[in-house]
Amino acid sequence: MIAFLIKRLMHAILVMFVISVLAFAIQDNLGDPVQQMVGQSVPESEREAIRERLGLNDPFIVQYARFAKNAVQGDFGDSYFYREPALEVIARHLPATLELVFAATLIIVLFSVPIGVYSAIKPRSPISRFFMGASIIGISIPVFLTAILLIQIFAIGITITLFPESTSWGAWLNGLLSTEGNMPSFGRGYDLVHVVGHWDTNLATWNGLQHLVLPAISLASIMLPLFIRLIRAEMMEVLQSEYVKYARAKGISMRRVYFVHALKNTMLPVITVGGVQIGTMVAYTILTETVFQWPGMGLMFLDAINRADIPLIVTYLMIVGVIFVVTNTIVDLIYGFVNPTVKLTGKPA
């Protein structure tokens, strides 16, 4: 176990190193940060002075060595735009992203398990067919579009006048299909509760939760169909296996067969995929956070790219690399608990 964790720690360090080299290597293609710092009419000599002060004129090796020297001491440089340490900036934006990912994960778990199991048990029922059809559409709609649609329907509101307003059924249908809006369409709201350090939470107030709903749904929308289909496929396979047949023959209640014997084995591959997908979700937050102006890491990263805020970009990429390593490690640990036949270090325990 300890050996496994140490190995993973080395992984994380290697990942950070590789990412930092790559990020530094491409920084010239990220644009000129000085351009974003000065007015358009500022003469070249002034720009050159700023470039010199920021050390942007040094060769790649010199810049990287300077960065690496500070980085091993925990100093990843100052963000040009935020004017404070990049790590600090990320720490401030991280809670918002984690809360969003948490809420989306919750939605995914709450919906994908029952729907997936149901459609595996009753594959021919109309409800199952509906969910399968809907999940195809869900997978195909980009998260950006989902977000805009959600905003239009639930934040701005839509007025349907498709049916004749003069008839009572027409008016009723129009009223039924129209929405009021009123849901918040951007930001985290002004009603956050401070927890600890940089962590202000949306989860403690009604207003905060309202702000969280639409972004969480749109972030979940991309993964939910995937998980429904995955759980359904795995479950169907498990239901065909010998031990399930045996359990049935033994006369164990179907309820127990489905939810205790079958579901447990269904979840094994789901956990693996799920862990990796949570990492991917951090990447999807870039889109979701941009549309909803959610002040998390994704939005911060996109802004940093637009401003060519190199220290922040490099640090963000390294942190995301670590997040991937950490989630994979946790997945492997959980996997070991769920399925004791798996040996983490590859040696007999």
Partner: peptide
């Protein structure tokens, strides 16, 4: 005054139309 930067065009317009700003 509460000033929120909303860089995305569509989101900014949505914020106005939904009464958020």
């Amino acid at each position: 005054i509460v000033l929120t930067p909303i860089a995305e065009n569509a989101s900014r317009v949505a914020a106005l139309l939904s009464g958020g700003v």
